[in-house]
């Protein structure tokens, strides 16, 4: 059983919704990323999504794109990201880590080489934003051959046929994009999200995380009532950016930790647990 599956099953047994923070690896520095990962786990993160910087992130909004640019300015590569995960694993063998990124840097490394290196580093899964189920079967095979999970996005516009196509290839969990738009976009409509999750759950047996548009404890709590996981990215990355720009990078782990504490508390207060399976 994969680390992701184990984690979600334990959460379900406990009646809790997962909290999944996203940060861009290498922002504001690779050393800080490692520290942040541990701090986020201490603050109640159940799984970590680590963004791999790419020069042309079409699915991301301005906040995450700027994080990507800060990381790229320091030359952070896919291998460096795997190096961060390897060091994280030296002291944390339980928290699943999912890589979120774009295809081109992976292909340059080589599909099989990437999948092997990811497993050796202790990575648990990958969400490759620009690979729909129709494309890149070699990469999908290579990742699955290493026993890693493949996470896919679902959108408000994904119809039944697409949800079913994704159900066939997805493992670990699926990531429902709650708003039309890019990461960090406008506010979400919880009733719409809830209705869509019913459609998804009728076709996919995996846990469903909800992200894009979760900016504070209140939205996190709302989402927790309907989702199996609350995914928060731009709200974290925006805080990292503000502190880095103010020359207060040293405070980042504390501020991020406190913010996640707040989300965790709000989620736990309203929690009715995972509803998948």
């Amino acid at each position: 059983m994969s680390r992701i599956q184990t984690r979600f099953e334990r959460l379900r047994d406990q009646g809790r919704t997962a909290l999944i923070p996203f940060i861009t690896a290498g922002d504001p520095s690779p050393a800080m990323t490692l520290e942040l990962m541990h701090r986020m786990v201490a603050a109640g993160a159940d799984l970590i999504e680590l963004g791999v910087p790419f020069s042309d992130p079409i699915a991301d909004g301005p906040v995450i794109q700027r994080a990507t640019e800060r990381a790229l300015a320091q030359g952070v590569s896919l291998r460096d990201v795997l190096g961060i995960v390897r060091r994280f694993r030296e002291t944390d063998s339980e928290t699943p880590v999912v890589l979120m990124g774009y295809l081109n840097p992976i292909e340059v490394m080589g599909n099989v080489a990437f999948a092997e290196a990811a497993r050796e580093a202790g990575m648990d899964g990958a969400l490759i934003v620009d690979v729909p189920p129709e494309e890149s079967h070699d990469l999908v095979d290579a990742i699955k051959a290493q026993g890693l999970d493949l996470v896919y996005l679902l959108a408000p516009t994904s119809d039944a046929a697409r949800i079913e196509a994704i159900a066939e290839v997805a493992s670990g969990f699926v990531y429902y994009v709650s708003v039309k738009g890019v990461t960090g976009a406008s506010t979400l409509d919880i009733d719409e999200v809830s209705a869509k999750l019913d459609t998804i759950r009728a076709r996919i047996a995996l846990p469903v995380g909800v992200g894009f548009g979760i900016r504070d404890a209140a939205t996190a709590a709302q989402v927790a009532r309907v989702a199996d996981a609350v995914i928060v990215g731009s709200a974290l990355v925006g805080r990292i950016e503000t502190l880095a720009e103010q020359g207060q990078a040293a405070r980042i782990p504390t501020v991020i930790g406190d913010f996640l504490d707040e989300l965790r508390t709000a989620i736990d207060a309203t929690d009715n647990g995972g509803q998948y399976g």
């Binding site: 934003v129 620009d130 729909p132 679902l154 959108a155 516009t157 697409r162």
Partner: peptide, 20 residues
Amino acid sequence: ACGHFGPYGGMFVPETLMHP
């Protein structure tokens, strides 16, 4: 039918773009 010219082309986009 999927937009490939030999090994090239295709639809390498996030799920959010598939419907449009």
